[in-house]
Amino acid sequence: MSSVTVPKKRSIWDGGVSPMNVSYGKMMMWFFLLSDAFTFSGLLITYGMLRYAHPAYEGDPDNFTFSTEYWPIPEKVYAAVPFLEGVHLPLVFVGIMTFILILSSVTMVLAVEAGHRMDQKDVEKWMLWTILGGIAFLSCQAWEWTHFIHGEPPGTRMPDGTIFMGANLVQNQYGPPAFADLFFFITGFHGFHVFSGVMLNIIIFYQVATGVMQRRGHYEMVEKVGLYWHFVDLVWVFVFTFFYLV
């Protein structure tokens, strides 16, 4: 049988072109972030499941006191601000952290925009602001963790009758042990992502500053770390709602 070549309509999936119209590295960053989104979903689903496995506080929110018997009202737990010890300012500090992260996301997207214009000085400037924003966020988180771990007087009576102040993985003054465990795991896992993001940003900032991207002719690495950085901000948007607000 003679081979007959039938002219066939070629699809974009037949090879030779990039069907998703992005580079390999950028596409892989997207799919890595998708898998990371699954991990964070798992953590937040666990939070929802464990929270509803515990009784909720039934009384008047104004008379709320900490107890290991029921799940605490989040805004009663996160009510401290540095230098204002003892003043009840619910969600103010976590609000400041949220704005720091949103603003660092904005400076990142401005760095990407400067990269499209091949403007090395602007990329450097905006990446430096992004790194500073990341470090500021991590510092805030360090303070928040310290406050959470050390607790505030007078402490709460534990099931064994002792008074305990602060929190660790086994017991905490704010509510059932699972509450502190989830706080450490979820904000810790997110904080580790922020830390990794700052490290990646510093590496890319160094390469930008030494002119590597300018010689390469494009700033796509800035876009890739930018994607990661925005994802970190995106996760915080969900953590903020489901951990602090709801």
């Binding site: 996301s105 904005v106 990142m108 997207v109 930018g226 994607l227 925005h230 994802f231 901000d233 995106l234 948007v237 969900f238």
Partner: peptide, 10 residues
């Protein structure tokens, strides 16, 4: 918020 971050920033 997620829509604007993913659609515009990303």
């Amino acid at each position: 918020k997620a829509f604007y971050i993913v659609a515009e920033f990303m």
